[in-house]
């Protein structure tokens, strides 16, 4: 379980996150929802210790973030973070070189599924293919948790469909996934849990099937309730 407890974050004098608490379970897809600039990416950065926090605590299976947790949690940022001059195979070799938990079989499977050519340079890839390589580099790690920042934004519809397929496959199954989005429509049926963020706080966190069952409301209905006041 990823536990974020009372996370507080300031940029200079501006408080971006006031008091953020939520958990993300293994085997579930947790979606952080909020408008742009609400601090979704900052939360993921904080989980990976990529930005200093002013308060609160983050635990991965009860453990504080350290070099060990990087073999447990993978972060897939919204843009690829490999050097542009690298070929896909170089990027893969780089990952395999540093991570014990790199799973080459899975990487090959995804290369195949996405139809990517390992000889291609990252700089020359289309937006959609760049997103796919980015996803591959994270998902081929045998980690328990995966954080994804806006995996569906800014890519063509076919790439989007392929990425959606990944979400319903064994590549995701049994892992804990945290994804951020500002557009929920495409993935409403994919997620288990929604965390609605606004004003640096968690306004509401709920299991989406439960809300449909008990209140007959969609995620968008809940968002309307929270954001249109």
């Amino acid at each position: 379980m990823i536990e974020v407890k009372h996370l507080r974050k300031k940029f200079g004098r501006k408080t971006v996150l006031q008091d953020i608490s939520f958990t993300a379970e293994k085997g579930e897809i947790t979606c952080l929802i909020g408008i742009n600039g609400v601090g979704k990416t900052t939360i993921l950065n904080a989980i990976m210790a990529l930005t200093p926090i002013q308060g609160g605590q983050i635990l991965i299976d009860g453990e504080r973030v350290s070099k060990r947790t990087f073999e447990k949690v993978a972060f897939i940022p919204d843009a690829i973070t490999m050097l542009p001059q690298m070929r896909i195979k170089d990027a893969i070799a780089f990952m395999a070189d540093y991570y014990h938990c790199w799973n080459q079989k899975r990487a090959d499977e995804m290369l195949n599924f996405f139809g990517l050519k390992v000889e291609e340079r990252i700089a020359n890839l289309s937006k959609g293919n760049t997103a796919k390589v980015n996803l591959l580099l994270g998902l081929a790690l045998d980690v328990d948790y995966i954080l994804m920042d806006e995996p569906f934004s800014g890519i063509d519809i076919f790439s989007r469909e392929q990425i959606t397929d990944v979400f319903t496959s064994h590549l995701i199954e049994d892992r804990g996934v945290v994804i951020t989005t500002h557009e929920i429509q495409d993935i409403e049926h994919l997620i288990d849990k929604a965390v609605l963020l606004d004003d640096g706080e968690v306004k509401m966190a709920f299991n989406v099937e439960e809300i449909r069952e008990t209140e007959g409301k969609s995620v968008v209905d809940m968002m309307r309730q929270v954001y249109q006041r």
């Binding site: 990976m48 990087f70 973070t81 542009p84």
Partner: peptide
């Protein structure tokens, strides 16, 4: 750089 490689470096399990 065009792709912020520092993410990658800081997230290495080392």
């Amino acid at each position: 750089g065009k792709n912020t490689f520092i993410y990658r470096l800081l997230m290495l399990p080392t």
